[in-house]
Design a protein around this nucleic acid. Structure first.
Length: 267
DNA sequence: AACTCACGCAACCGCGGGACG
DNA sequence: TCGTCCCGCGGTTGCGTGAGT
């Protein structure tokens, strides 16, 4: 018996996606939605497994993704959420609109983990490392470089015991989004960092503007009737639903894009 | 210029869980 | 209740790239 493989290995392409494949995937999802990932590659004319398509879409092609490095505020939020949730990257990602679990996971492993270790904080427990007792404190900001400074709330509860509801708690609000000015700065910083392979994306989305508009105003659109019906992984819980009603004119759509930090998609 | 090494990120893999018949 | 299918998650891998020598 055993589990059926997600796709027959023969004839299924692996490895990096080409611009052509991206375009096919975008094209298909914009016109049909993603009714069934397993069937999608065949229908879209892709020699990929459905899983690979889903990953590519959710981690890279989704138009609501923010691009570029995580801002200081976002990083801080990730640390706070990780202290509460542990390695529940998808849950953490759901609190950061436009960010994917994969992106956050990578950022954690490559940047934040190191920063915390450097600061004498155990990245897993969020407690001071035993060999550096001088670091013990309730809340601290330690860094030789002010720009890198991260305040850390020592974790007092077991991650397994804490279940956070869909709404942002008071504690989180106060510990993460400290002031509007810093948010604005980070937003500007974000815009600066956002995504520099503009050419590729404007190519990928070049034909999609008109198609997308047609699709969004088309009752025939997708299974759920919306581009993001209810099945976008990660950030879906906190996201408003994209629907033809909401995005039936260009201005609204652009506003919408901006709300999610999509500043350059060739639209 | 050529080589090595370290780093960061995209993509893959395997498993768990929910939905459904 | 059980088996199957599919989706999504978390851990891991491997490749591209830039820095250092």
């Amino acid at each position: 018996m055993g589990r059926q493989p997600c796709c027959d290995k023969l004839g299924v392409k692996k490895g990096p996606w080409t611009a052509e494949e991206d375009k096919k995937l975008i094209n298909f999802i914009l016109t049909n939605g993603h009714c069934c990932w397993r069937a999608l590659p065949k229908l879209a004319g892709l020699r990929r497994c459905g899983k690979s398509c889903r990953l590519r879409w959710t981690n890279y092609l989704r138009p609501d993704l923010k691009r570029g490095l995580l801002s200081h505020d976002e990083e801080q939020l990730v640390i706070d959420l990780h202290a509460h949730l542990g390695n529940k990257w998808s849950k953490i990602a759901s609190r950061l609109p436009g960010r994917t679990d994969n992106e956050i996971k990578n950022h954690w492993n490559t940047h934040i983990k190191k920063k915390l270790l450097k600061m004498g904080i155990d990245p897993m427990t969020h407690q001071p490392l035993p060999q550096e007792p001088s670091n013990i404190g309730n809340s601290k900001t330690i860094s030789s470089n002010p720009a890198d400074a991260i305040s850390v709330e020592p974790k007092t509860t077991n991650t397994k015991d804490v279940e956070i509801s869909g709404t942002t708690t008071e504690e989180e609000s106060s510990s993460t989004v400290t002031d509007q000015n810093s948010s604005m700065d980070s937003e500007n910083h974000l815009i600066d960092n956002i995504y520099n392979d503009d050419e590729l994306f404007s190519y990928l989305w070049s034909d999609e503007t008109t198609k997308a508009e047609a699709s969004w105003s088309d009752s025939n659109f997708g299974v759920g009737g919306t581009l993001y019906d209810n099945n976008i992984s990660g950030a879906d819980a906190d996201f408003p639903i994209w629907s033809p009603e909401r995005i039936n004119d260009e201005k609204m759509f652009l506003d919408y894009c901006q709300d999610f930090g999509v500043h350059d998609f060739g639209f």
